[in-house]
Write a protein that binds this DNA or RNA. Structure first.
Length: 463
RNA sequence: GCGUCGGUGGUAGAGCGGUCAAUUACAACAGACUGUAAAUCUGUCGCCUUCGGGCUACGUAGGUUCAAAUCCUACCCGACGCA
């Protein structure tokens, strides 16, 4: 089997786990560390692909559960895969649906976040467990898989590790995730341990199913398209795909040969719909806030034949960095690591310093839609009265489209008037801010100035 | 001029004798948001407060009543109808 992914470490932060590298996928290179922009339903809410490209976004992440429910993974397969369907020709990831086990399960109808403040005593009762709180939930965990009650129409669905991988193969993202159980920080140790062994069993099943589908894919591709070899990483290198993603799929010559090109007006035959590009599978480390479980999980998942790793689950804000460190000291150094669902600036510095290569987070786009924008001096809520007549730009010195063209006052007006352009412009800014921040971290690693950059940034940001 | 209906907190609009500082919505003022159930959610929203309560309020002025935004009288203002 050809490798779906190639990861090259370029430079490390001396005496730390952090590193800068290049992650090559069939749809282009990701310069790491990198922030992955979340586009759950095959769209980064409120922004177009062109806007993402102009903000130098390298990679996006969609969601298995959501796309399976709507419009359906088979439809997306028939449309030529998710890249083509959503008009994103760069590197693409899909999450497995494991997070929905949490968000639609234990956390459903409650105010539980995957990151908790240790100062919140209500979440720290050791005996507390989700087993019997009387509140109905949409996801119920079993040992074989998870029953989901659709939040859209109430229909019942059963997702197993195999099913999640099948769906993700239909979607065709470059990097996919094993089906896991993201636990709540409110679960007690006993439950965390049970969930962890389930996650490990599911990781193994995900991997087995993935390899099976990759083999089928490779065989089919070689039979159908004579004379054309299945994707080989070396081809990508020879094509000189630029690090900044280009909009035109013609860069990916092999894709066209194999019928997955994005030429306009082209119709799809079943052969053309074949998902012939190899996909990489990341296993997910869990373990909650427990050092023993985190380390155990890193050992177990890290020893399996995954192309990279996700670090998932719940943390307490205060000990997130130590938890990440425990894990990354164990995971194989030569494979990429993705810290799932983390994206506050301070957490990004922590993650990069401790050896994380990829991050994703809904934060930047969600807070943007709710009127909050990043600035170098901290977040601002543009709905605050003081911005009504503030004709300055949002973040002095920012090069994003929004900052180059609009004032705080105008943004304030859009949000007060509930004009949807507000969400778009704020999202463009926040995406630019956060992806550039991580990109700047990368450059600082390459320049040996990571800690200077970190201190300088955080001093201003959190003052 | 006569008749009818109506005037409630920033706005709209409930309430029609006590449980009313007054339902609700909007506006306003803040806060939250970390693998998206989210263009969402939460709090505050007459004045003062030692958070127990106190004070001033439902067009204006009187009156009835233990008690009035609610009933009566006059006046002012508005809408509609008839002249």
């Amino acid at each position: 089997m050809k490798k779906a992914l190639n990861f090259k470490i370029e430079k490390k932060i001396p005496n730390f786990l952090g590193r800068a590298g290049v992650l090559s996928t069939p749809h282009g290179d990701i310069l790491t560390p990198s922030f992955v922009v979340v586009g759950t339903k095959g769209t980064v809410k409120s922004v177009t692909t062109e806007q993402l490209i102009s903000d130098k976004v390298q990679v996006t992440l969609a969601n298995t559960y959501h796309l399976y429910l709507q419009p359906g993974d088979e439809l997306i397969r028939d449309a030529g895969g998710l890249h083509k369907f959503m008009n994103w020709s760069g590197p693409l990831m899909t999450d497995s649906g494991g997070f929905q086990v949490f968000s639609l399960g234990v956390a459903y109808g409650k105010e539980i976040s995957k990151v908790i403040a240790v100062t919140d005593p209500s979440l720290l009762i050791a005996e507390r467990s989700s087993v019997d709180d009387g509140i109905p939930r949409l996801a119920v965990v079993g040992n074989d898989g998870v029953s989901f009650r659709s939040h859209i129409d109430g229909s019942l669905h059963y997702i197993t590790p195999e099913k999640s991988i099948e769906i993700q193969h239909n979607l065709g993202a470059d990097i996919i995730f094993a089906f896991d159980e993201c636990t709540s920080p409110t679960e007690n140790d006993k439950y965390q341990e049970e969930a962890l062994s389930r996650t490990h069993a599911w990781a193994k099943r995900s991997l087995t199913k993935h390899k099976e589908l990759e083999n089928i894919k490779e065989n089919k591709a070689s039979q159908k398209v004579l004379g054309v070899q299945p994707f080989d990483k070396s081809e990508v290198v020879s094509l000189k795909i630029p690090a900044s993603i280009k909009a035109e799929p013609e860069d990916f010559a092999h894709s066209q040969v194999l019928g997955r090109g994005r030429t306009r007006g082209q119709t799809n035959s079943p052969e053309q719909n074949l998902q012939v590009l190899p996909q990489a599978l990341f296993g997910i480390v869990q373990g909650g806030r427990s050092e023993i479980l985190r380390k155990k999980s890193a050992e177990v998942i890290g020893s399996m034949d995954f192309d990279g790793f996700g670090i998932g689950g719940s943390f307490a804000k205060e000990d997130m960095s130590t938890a990440v460190k425990w894990v990354n000291e164990i995971l194989p150094e030569e494979k990429p690591r993705h810290l799932l669902g983390i994206g506050e600036p301070i957490d990004l510095f922590m993650g990069v310093e401790n050896g994380v290569d990829l991050f994703d987070c809904v934060g930047p786009t969600r807070i943007a839609r709710n009127g909050t924008m990043f600035t170098k001096n901290g977040k601002i809520n543009i709905l605050n009265a003081k911005f009504v007549e503030d004709f300055n730009i949002i973040d002095e010195g920012c090069e994003c489209y929004t900052c180059k063209n609009y004032t705080r006052s105008y943004m304030s007006h859009l949000f007060r008037a509930k004009e949807m352009l507000g969400a778009t412009l704020a999202s463009i800014h926040n995406i630019y801010f956060i992806t550039k921040l991580v990109s700047d971290m990368r450059n600082s690693i390459l320049n040996n100035t990571f800690h200077d950059f970190k201190n300088e940034f955080l001093n201003k940001y959190s003052k």
